[in-house]
Each structure stands twice: as structure tokens, then as C-alpha cells.
Amino acid sequence: MRRYPPRGDKPFRYPRAQEENESPRERRRLFESEEPKREPAPSKGSPDSGYAMPEKNASERVDSETAGQVSNEPESKELEWREPERPDNGEKTITGMGVESTGLAGTIELATAFVPWQMYGRTLDLREALRLGTLFPELTRTPPRYKKPGTRGEE
């Protein structure tokens, strides 16, 4: 059974970073270097586009509209594929496991919980600690004021 934090002289690091022996920045750099080149979207009508729906001829469309006939063919717009819009904020988009994230979120994995590790720093005065319920100022919380149901909170 593994034990966190590990005993030893080395400073504590998050388990994942420790296992892979790389920092989040280093992991991102490696990921970007391994990212395959994104091919541009094939143009409509090209043989390798994958969309077999033929484009309706412009002259035929004008003729059918002028003749008052309704075409039974589905609109080809429904089958158009577009590149998803990405915010152009200078940050590189990271794609992986079907999810995308940009900016700060790109440096960490999505849907992964991280708990900050408490570091020993300043401690409160003992009387204040007894009153607040903790010795550590970073753990103090102001409890919400109790509001009696049906009132505005004055009572």
C-alpha cells in the first residue's frame, strides 16, 4: 500500500507529478511536442471529403425556385462539417481524450480533483485559535449567519 506523503528528505510533490517525474509545465511541453499535425478540413466536393451528398447546381436551384417546385432532396447544409470555433487568446488548445481546454485549464487534466497540500506557516494566537476552532489562519472560515425561516434574517 502506497503512503502519501512519502517519508523521506525529499519535499512532497503531487503523486502524479512524482510518478511521471515531470512538472505540469514539462508535461504540457511534451504533450505539445507529440501532438500530431492537424490536417486542414477537406474541401467540399473533393474525393476524400467523406461527404457523398452532391452539391446542387446553382442554375438548377434557380430554375426550380422560379418554377415553384419544391425539391425533395435534403439540404446539403445539414451535412456540412465545420471546424469548432476556438477562442483566439494566444493560448494553445490542447486536445486529448475527446475534451479540449484552453488557457490555464490546459495545464491540468479536466475532471480531476486536486487538493492543495497544507504547508506549516504562521499559527494563530492560542486564545484566538480556541475561539475560531483552528490553529491555522488559512483554515479559518466565517460561518454563514443563521437565518430563521420566514424572516429576512434580522432575528
Partner: peptide, 24 residues
């Protein structure tokens, strides 16, 4: 005595997860 006991309890809890913290 109450203040010191509370401080000892809180430090004890901290040391349970930070056994190598020499300052604590």
C-alpha cells in the same frame, strides 16, 4: 490549559498527515 490543549490537538491532527514536518 484549555487553549494549550486545543493547540496540542490541532498540531496533533496536522502531524498525522505531515509526520516529517520538523517545525510543527
Amino acid at each position: 490549559i484549555m487553549e494549550l490543549e486545543f493547540a496540542c490537538i490541532d498540531l496533533d491532527l496536522y502531524l498525522a498527515t505531515h509526520p516529517d514536518d520538523t517545525r510543527a
